[in-house]
Nucleic acid binder design. Structure first.
Lengths: 334, 334
DNA sequence: TTGAAAGCGATACCAC
DNA sequence: GTGGTATCGCTTTCAA
């Protein structure tokens, strides 16, 4: 592969000059610029991002850490970040943390070793303390989906508590009084927040939260399926089930149907996230909107602004959920 | 951030020695190794992958190009590749091609500029010629999901024609004779192949292919939705609809239901891909399995074997689709 | 406007 | 076993 030396030689100019035309530095005469450009063309020259990074201590890359590379939620996030960054020729180096503290830390170290100019992190297991320390290590970070004490301005987060509240309140407004709850892994921050919002709504309506009707799922279809099966096996009755995300809602619906129930006639269901496919489920899923795309874009903008000095962006740190009413909830007359 | 110089100084050894312990080179006494290791520890030393790449002309990264970063299909692919590679401390640099020849080529150039040790490509728009030329440029490539003339051994592909055939034959076996087809974008290779397999099955059963019942979709839910709406608006009747992928099948089902039809009683539906969510649709979707994960792993293994010299892997170039019968097809008695 | 030369942080070959 | 040093491909002063 041709190097800058080859170009400089063929064009009959110095390395510095070649470097100047690459970086669109003004102080180059049109004539030399043309010579250089055509030399590059002839050689099929492609600058080495590696050498460039070493020399400039700027890698033009930002590390993105998410829990999983698959899954509709993370996919959207990644996609949005990549799109925003790419427009400025910044590349996303993507790694998966698998919701495990060890792997998350390892991935962060990995991204750091790649000398990313900044890190955008969706982390669930690593502690607030760890993140706060990391922020002081030099590489700018923005934490997405979580509010970390001490570095609030580096965070882009959703009010999950409010989301949990909205879902429950909606059901209560529709007349439901007995509801089951299929949560995500209970150690996760957002899971706990959603659940506490849920309880707040119940309290407001003076209905008791029944621990027996709480199932700890895994945020995936499978967990929703098992959760519903479990709940249906109980002696308790309930007219609605709230799932802590849409994927589990999909699994739960399938399970309910396998048990012969129809939705929403026999059972109402509410999800969380408002993934694309929520409206292609049957019946169309009533859920809580999670503005992932917007949040991901915001994280990217934060980096573009604070790390790459792009002044055109303004940033916000918190986002709000919103209820999206569709067809999976039936009104109950009491 | 500490450099190798700092470590060598603190440990009181030469650069070369530090480098040796990093690379687990045997020729270092236990004593010096310990000195170096503790110096690294003290300094919080983290080798620069960038400098390493420049010096060794090995970036320990492979470029992965896919059409979109979101979407269940690509997500699974990416995830599988990353997992395989990561185990060997090889990193995936991921880029999106957006099914556009210009962007695909640009992304490839981008990955090349990053000096990836190899490229794993899912490309749809760029020509066979382009790929064959690229393969000669030096950086090893493996093309996934497509068989490219001239570089067949660098390809990992599925027999799409067979998949299209299987879907249609299944419907024919179940007694269906009038079926509509919601295809993907007709310029795509796999779309054409699936469709031609479809026609082969029809021919075998001596049933005519009705051009009027062919709709060109977009491989996404939305396209399936519109396709079904379109088909239902026709004067033609049909007892089944084959969708060229599961996402469109989901959209199509929603549309059919909006029109008051029940599935599979009034209309049978078959998909393609066998995504996770196919079994959480209602009714559970009968589809054709696309072994994406296996294929992605194979692509990663190919690279691990041929580029990084890992002899433990064996490679295969072609994969076969298989029909997965579930609940979205009704048997028709004739 | 252009060039010379000193890094950037590792690797790897050659001595000792 | 360990050290010296050229080298990778580019950026970035500093002079001219």
């Amino acid at each position: 592969m041709a190097t800058i030396y080859d170009v400089s030689e063929l064009a009959g100019v110095s390395l510095a000059t070649v470097s100047r035309v690459m970086n669109k530095n003004a102080n180059v005469s049109d004539k030399t610029r043309q010579k250089v450009l055509s030399a590059m063309e002839q050689l099929g020259y492609r600058p080495s991002a590696i050498a460039k990074g070493l020399a400039s201590s700027r890698s033009s890359s930002v590390g993105v850490l998410i829990s999983e590379l698959h899954g509709p939620f993370y996919g959207l996030m990644m996609s949005a970040i990549e799109t925003e960054l790419r427009e400025f020729d910044i590349h996303a180096i993507i790694a998966a943390g698998h919701s495990d503290a060890g792997k998350e830390a390892e991935s962060i170290e990995f991204l750091l070793s790649r000398r990313c100019d900044a890190l955008i992190l969706w982390v669930e297991s690593v502690s607030d303390r760890y993140l706060a320390d990391l922020a002081k290590r030099g590489t700018p970070i923005v934490v997405i989906g979580r509010k970390v004490a001490g570095i609030a301005r580096n965070c882009v987060s959703l009010n999950n508590e409010e989301g949990g509240y909205l879902a429950a309140r909606y059901l209560l407004e529709q007349g439901h009084r007995k509801m089951a709850y299929i949560a995500g892994p209970l150690w996760k921050h957002d899971v706990k927040e959603r659940l506490s919002g849920h309880k707040r709504a119940l309290a407001e309506y003076k209905v008791n939260f029944n621990e027996k009707l709480l199932y700890e799922g895994d945020y995936r279809e499978e967990g929703g399926f098992r959760g519903m099966s479990h709940l249906l096996g109980l002696r308790n009755t309930f007219s609605a089930v709230i799932c802590a995300n849409d994927e589990m809602a999909a699994g739960a619906m399938t399970s309910a149907r396998d048990a012969g129930l129809s939705i929403p006639e026999d059972l109402s269901i509410v999800g969380f996230d408002n993934l694309v496919y929520a409206r292609y489920l049957y019946p169309k899923l009533t859920t809580v909107n999670y503005p992932v795309r917007e949040m991901a874009q915001m994280a990217a903008h934060w980096v573009l602004k604070h790390v790459y000095g792009n002044r055109r962006f303004t940033t916000t740190n918190t986002f709000a959920p919103a209820l999206v009413a569709r067809d999976s909830v039936k009104k109950v007359h009491r």
